[in-house]
Amino acid sequence: MIDKSFLYPLHPEWFKNEAMLPEYQQAAKEITTGQVARANIYVNVLMSEYGLSDNSLSSFIVPQAKDIQYLYNKGFNMVLGTDTGNDFNFPGYSLHEEMQLMEMGGISNLDIITMGTLNAAKMLGVADQLGSVEVGKVADIIILDENPLESISNTLSINTILKNGVVQKRFENE
């Protein structure tokens, strides 16, 4: 996700996805020459590092996803994380976008979900309390309208959130 966010200034077409947050469209209107210069440096480094001949989104994502999958298969505890704080990462939404990039790169949706739940709990040392649905664990659950195993973007189809077993009030965009 961090690589994609650095490359956004060179690819304004990536902002045209209707599902994206309005903040993305606003950020696209405010791209600076400094962001474009940084993106050009970054794209050259990535292309050299991965031996790429084009700078399409999939050409960057696939080799990185293969690296993640390789480490995951070797037993590394891979978790999700978008490195928020950079210009085109938005807390909450960018995590969903990162999952979509991992799916694009060939990582299975079940592995992606595990990285965001049980693996994250393991990393934080709280897997005995969080990260999976089991008797005795904290009941923090997101109920979706669509199956994320079919398409990871279905994680955006949030129906209900339970925090510690209590249904949370939904705030609608105004």
Results as ranks from 00 to 15, higher is better:
44 N>I: 00
27 A>M: 06
91 P>N: 10
22 P>W: 11
82 T>A: 10
66 K>R: 10
122 K>I: 07
122 K>Q: 09
81 G>P: 06
107 I>H: 03
74 K>H: 14
40 N>K: 10
79 V>W: 09
138 V>E: 07
91 P>Q: 09
48 S>Y: 04
39 A>Q: 01
135 V>E: 07
119 N>T: 13
18 E>D: 15
123 M>T: 04
71 L>D: 05
45 V>E: 08
123 M>N: 04
29 K>G: 12
85 G>K: 15
78 M>T: 14
126 V>N: 00
26 Q>F: 00
135 V>I: 09
77 N>P: 08
140 D>F: 02
66 K>T: 13
105 G>S: 06
95 L>T: 12
45 V>T: 07
132 S>F: 00
27 A>H: 03
17 N>C: 01
127 A>F: 06
99 M>F: 08
36 V>E: 13
82 T>I: 01
150 E>N: 15
17 N>Y: 03
10 L>N: 07
84 T>G: 08
40 N>C: 00
144 L>M: 09
96 H>S: 09
38 R>N: 11
47 M>P: 13
92 G>D: 05
10 L>F: 02
102 M>E: 02
114 T>S: 10
70 Y>S: 15
35 Q>R: 11
50 Y>T: 03
49 E>Q: 15
150 E>L: 12
72 Y>F: 10
103 E>C: 07
41 I>F: 04
16 K>P: 00
57 L>S: 07
106 G>F: 08
130 L>F: 13
94 S>W: 01
51 G>S: 11
18 E>P: 09
11 H>P: 09
15 F>A: 15
89 N>A: 14
40 N>Y: 02
104 M>Y: 00
136 G>E: 08
149 L>Q: 08
141 I>L: 15
132 S>K: 14
21 L>S: 14
69 Q>I: 11
38 R>F: 14
119 N>Q: 09
47 M>I: 09
95 L>Q: 04
101 L>T: 02
147 N>S: 09
13 E>S: 15
74 K>P: 05
146 E>R: 13
95 L>Y: 01
17 N>G: 02
103 E>K: 14
124 L>A: 12
100 Q>P: 00
147 N>F: 08
142 I>D: 02
69 Q>P: 01
126 V>Q: 01
11 H>D: 11
71 L>E: 07
43 V>P: 01
27 A>L: 13
84 T>Q: 05
107 I>Q: 07
16 K>Y: 10
16 K>R: 12
64 Q>A: 06
148 P>D: 05
54 D>I: 08
106 G>E: 04
31 I>W: 05
68 I>F: 13
19 A>T: 06
21 L>F: 07
115 M>Y: 07
31 I>K: 10
52 L>C: 13
93 Y>A: 13
33 T>N: 08
17 N>F: 04
42 Y>E: 11
69 Q>R: 08
75 G>K: 09
141 I>W: 11
83 D>K: 11
144 L>P: 10
73 N>H: 10
32 T>S: 15
19 A>V: 06
125 G>V: 03
132 S>G: 01
67 D>Y: 05
150 E>T: 14
74 K>W: 08
26 Q>E: 03
139 A>T: 05
16 K>Q: 12
72 Y>G: 06
148 P>H: 06
103 E>Q: 14
100 Q>S: 13
107 I>N: 02
27 A>T: 03
146 E>D: 03
101 L>C: 03
105 G>I: 03
44 N>L: 00
22 P>L: 08
